[in-house]
Amino acid sequence: MSIFVNKDTKVLVQGITGNEGSFHTRQCISYGTRIVAGVTPGKGGQKMDGVPVFNTVAGAVKETGADASLIFVPPPFGADAIMEAADAGVSLIVAITEGIPILDMVKVKNFLSSRKCRLIGPNCPGIITPEECKIGIMPGMIHKKGHVGVVSRSGTLTYEVVDQLTKNGMGQSTCIGIGGDPVNGTNFIDVLSAFEADPDTHAMVMVGEIGGSAEEDAAAYIKAHVTKPVVGFIAGLTAPPGRRMGHAGAIISGSSGTGDAKIKAFKENGIHVCENLGRIGQICKEVF
């Protein structure tokens, strides 16, 4: 079992003919993901490594029955691409694109609220159910099938955590990067509740960072609703206040969003805190 995606998920790629789009489409295909279509406006009718390319998402869905979309389009067109996918009836949208304006995302969230679909990201590495389906840019080979669910606001930091889990003999049920933007589609609580309900997920790792209050909200949720063990990590304890640390959402504003407040919320709500990333695999092994 897993959450959100499995070996039957049929994926289309928006921006499949671009540099990153084509590279990562190939990586996904070689991992075993069922990539059934690509979309690049104006390139309909072409093929990318045998994958048919369509002008519109609606056209791709009609022909191939794709139920998930992976988005690589540039940031000025990111919001448009997400809405196009949602309007075409795609039920899972994974937006890798970094740099979509926040007011665009606020509108996108409004647009999605009346539709039955899940958005993961933007500005995220995507989602993977090891040895079944990879919809994203994470290096597949570090993952291993197993029972730990991983959710994170970061990309490469998630790979680090997964790598240590695998090396310490703990496989993963599903790993999700929810993205580093202040307004995103799926939040920690959405993922934690799905992991709690998934019989094949036995434990969880939650990787947060400075900025906002998503970690504090998730910590309160965990105390009230999650029975499985959770290990938590927060990045950015040494970050100076008022500076945007790469991610649009990673900023301490005034007294809110500090790493210390998040660590405190983790500890108060029964989450096992890892304070040294180099040891997170080891700590998970001890806790789980």
Binding site: L237, A239, G246, A250
Partner: peptide, 16 residues
């Protein structure tokens, strides 16, 4: 470092 999260965590590790 590549990636903001890992970059922040790397700073933390250096400090640690």
């Amino acid at each position: 470092v590549n990636g903001a999260g890992l970059a922040m965590a790397t700073m933390d590790i250096i400090k640690n």
